[in-house]
Design a protein around this nucleic acid. Structure first.
Lengths: 128, 128
DNA sequence: GTTCTTGGATTACGGCTGTAAGTGTGGGCT
DNA sequence: AGCCCACACTTACAGCCGTAATCCAAGAAC
């Protein structure tokens, strides 16, 4: 009985992150957060995307006077899981291990991160 | 001096995989491979996508008589790296470790796979 | 109260996607 | 020689995306 997670596009992800970071929030607040992270964000664009995300069922709003307060209908975890699945499928044909191997081989992991990952793996083994 | 990797859509990935798996190949062969993996593939659709991938610079063809032999212009590794970057950015805001942690936590890794990953990590440490 | 501002609603528009159908032509089969 | 078929080429079309501009109504400012 799992709810379907709507497909979130690239720029919509940015909007969602802005909402997840603190909510409920007005369109203006959200537009501000986005512009702060990247000044090229136009408020109109933000509003358009908020509308689309509501249509898609990713957000909802409560009306407070003439102001809309947006809140997420899906959690970041759910969206991450869903996007991860589709990425895994698309790029690695669903094979998890090759995917992880690919990322581990990238040169951008610091030695500490490697150690932390080893710990995560170790914990996972114990946890059954 | 890195060549730009074209953006490959979901279904285009399936086509690319079919080409990478054995090439050069005719449109007919590629359509067959796709249909074999998933019978809902229509040959016309495959041909359309081949054309689009050529436009995008992901494939090229050599003409042999009246038949086109398609071959990749980008390697699977390059495409994987490029798609991985964009996924990492979009979904995890570019943070590699949380991303790996997320996937390791998924329940779908078998114990052997966990061991293999540990080995990959270990090798990576030694390798400098 | 009249104008200015602010925020939501509607409209725009070109490019990308998924999914094919139509068209024309050169060979192969008869 | 004539017909059919396989291909490549062209066209189709709706839905999603990025990126806004325009329109309209209700409050804010004067």
């Amino acid at each position: 009985m799992k709810k379907p997670i709507p497909r979130i596009s690239d720029t919509e992800w940015e909007v969602m992150r802005a909402v997840w970071s603190r909510h409920p929030a007005t369109a203006g607040e959200i537009a501000d957060r986005l512009a702060q992270a990247d000044p090229s964000w136009h408020p109109k664009t933000a509003r358009t995307l908020l509308g689309r995300l509501v249509e898609k069922g990713a957000l909802a709003y409560d009306v407070d006077g003439r102001i809309f307060l947006y809140r997420p209908l899906v959690t970041e975890q759910e969206c991450i899981a869903s996007a991860s699945d589709s990425f895994l499928d698309r790029v690695f044909g669903g094979a998890l291990k090759p995917m992880l191997a690919h990322f581990v081989e990238r040169e951008s992991l610091s030695p500490e991160e490697v150690r932390e990952l080893e710990q995560i793996l170790a914990r996972r083994k114990n946890r059954r």
